[in-house]
Nucleic acid binder design. Structure first.
Length: 188
DNA sequence: CGACTTTGACCAGCGC
DNA sequence: GCGCTGGTCAAAGTCG
């Protein structure tokens, strides 16, 4: 998930995948939204705004957040200011897999059916000690070939893949850093 | 045996 | 005030 270097992973210094890993074989990025300090930006190429107009759960979170004074509901419904929560990043990817390996280790802690989506939403926490990053994953209700992933928080540790990479200084990083191409404009 | 997943229950915010 | 909803917890079950 090369794009995660810039959007999924809140920490842009991290890279996820070893050279021989080509996530694009398994899915393609269709849209991504990035939410930061109450402002989310989308890929401004031609395709539609992924989700907020389509009533998708992930983007509903965004519109909900922005319409609720940029606050985010946290643990047990406690509302926090975005600045307390940290980064929030929403992706829409075309993938057969619901759970994409972004290089971090996630632990599932909940599953919930949500009103706006026929598909259940899955909740994951980063299983690294002391890291409080969470992510939600759900299938696009409109097009089940798409998966909506929402990351909340910033990892305070390296990706295991990054550690792996650091051990191989001879590997050419360009081989995969250059994969950070703009999201596909063809969301079909 | 430890780590992980599943799943129902619980809690708090929001709208009516 | 009540009901709905989303998010989290925690016990039980599963797997390597």
């Amino acid at each position: 998930m090369d794009f995660s270097r810039e959007s999924s992973n809140p920490n842009p210094n991290y890279t996820f995948f070893p050279e021989n890993f080509d996530p694009m074989v398994q899915f393609e990025l269709s849209d991504y939204l990035m939410v930061d300090d109450g402002v989310f930006k989308e890929d401004t190429s031609s395709h539609n705004m992924a989700s907020s107009e389509k009533g998708l759960g992930g983007a509903n979170e965004i519109s909900g957040a922005t319409s609720k004074n940029s606050n985010i509901k946290c643990k047990s419904g406690v509302t926090k200011n975005k600045s307390e929560v940290g980064h929030r990043v929403v992706f829409r990817t075309k993938s057969e897999m619901e759970v994409m390996d972004d290089g971090y280790k996630w632990r599932k802690y909940g599953k919930k059916s949500v009103k706006n989506s026929p598909n259940p939403r899955n909740y994951y926490k980063c299983s690294s000690g002391g890291c409080d990053v969470k992510k939600r994953i759900e299938r696009d209700g409109d097009d089940k070939s798409f998966v909506i992933t929402t990351y909340v928080g910033v990892h305070n540790h390296e990706s295991p893949y990054m550690a792996y990479y650091n051990q191989m200084p001879l590997m050419a990083p360009n081989a995969w850093t250059l994969k950070a191409s703009p999201p596909s404009s063809s969301s079909t």
